[in-house]
Amino acid sequence: MALSSDDHREARLFRNNKSQAVRIPADFELPGEKVMIHREGDRLIIEPIRRKDLLEVLAGLTPLGPEDEFPDIDDGLLPLKEIHL
């Protein structure tokens, strides 16, 4: 069921130890296990944290420079296997 921006529901606030929590109705459920929350005036905005895909992870890596050294590898430790693609 797709929700439009006009859909509003009342939700309950409760205490969880020293934190205030909100009980989100099932039809407003967010994906994942974590959210990002920020304040805009007197509003709280809650957004799901999206898992990065492989291309995003790779784009965030810094290239290795000439000062980065790899350890010597003993070629005799691992047998090489031919791979057919």
Rank of each mutant, 00 (worst) to 15 (best):
G60Q: 05
V57R: 08
E69F: 02
R9T: 13
R9C: 11
K34Q: 14
T62R: 15
A21K: 09
L54C: 04
G65A: 12
D27A: 11
K52P: 09
I49T: 02
D74K: 08
L54V: 09
H84G: 06
L3W: 04
R50C: 02
G65Q: 15
H84E: 07
I49A: 09
D74V: 00
P63Q: 09
H8M: 14
V57Q: 07
F14A: 10
R9M: 10
P48M: 03
L3H: 08
K81E: 08
N16Q: 14
P31A: 09
S5F: 05
E82P: 03
I49C: 04
L55Y: 01
L13M: 10
D75M: 06
I49M: 06
L13N: 03
I46S: 12
E40R: 12
D75W: 00
D7R: 15
L80W: 02
I49D: 04
F70L: 15
E33A: 15
F70M: 15
K34N: 13
P71L: 08
P79L: 01
I73S: 12
E56A: 05
E67I: 05
R50K: 10
I83N: 08
A11F: 01
H8E: 15
S5K: 13
L64P: 13
E67F: 03
L44A: 08
L3D: 11
L55M: 09
M36F: 02
L61Y: 00
H38T: 11
V35K: 14
I73H: 11
E67N: 14
N16C: 13
